[in-house]
């Protein structure tokens, strides 16, 4: 399942790598694409192994605020 998570504006390009590497390591995540300028994360994940909520928690733990 492909979902787009919107974040509060990302401040630095190095954040992109942090989120990418962090989310990618979760079980059930197939691919992650972090869009720096539009501050969005596109995640393709297997909804039986992981939920959108879990991914949002991971991103928040890394220090970024998920919007809405």
């Amino acid at each position: 399942m492909l979902e787009t998570i919107k974040l509060e504006q990302l401040g630095c390009p190095s954040c992109v790598k942090k989120i990418e590497v962090g989310v990618k390591q979760q079980d059930g995540v197939n691919s992650v694409d972090v869009l720096f300028n539009s501050s969005k994360v596109k995640v393709d994940f297997d909804e039986e192994t992981i939920t959108r909520k879990d991914i949002e928690v991971v991103i928040e733990k890394l220090g970024y605020t998920v919007k809405g």
């Binding site: 630095c12 190095s14 790598k17 942090k18 590497v21 962090g22 390591q25 733990k61 890394l62 220090g63």
Partner: peptide, 15 residues
Amino acid sequence: VYFALQALRMKYMSI
């Protein structure tokens, strides 16, 4: 240090 450790827990070396 907090954010450095968070990233490191995800096995990523950040600035």
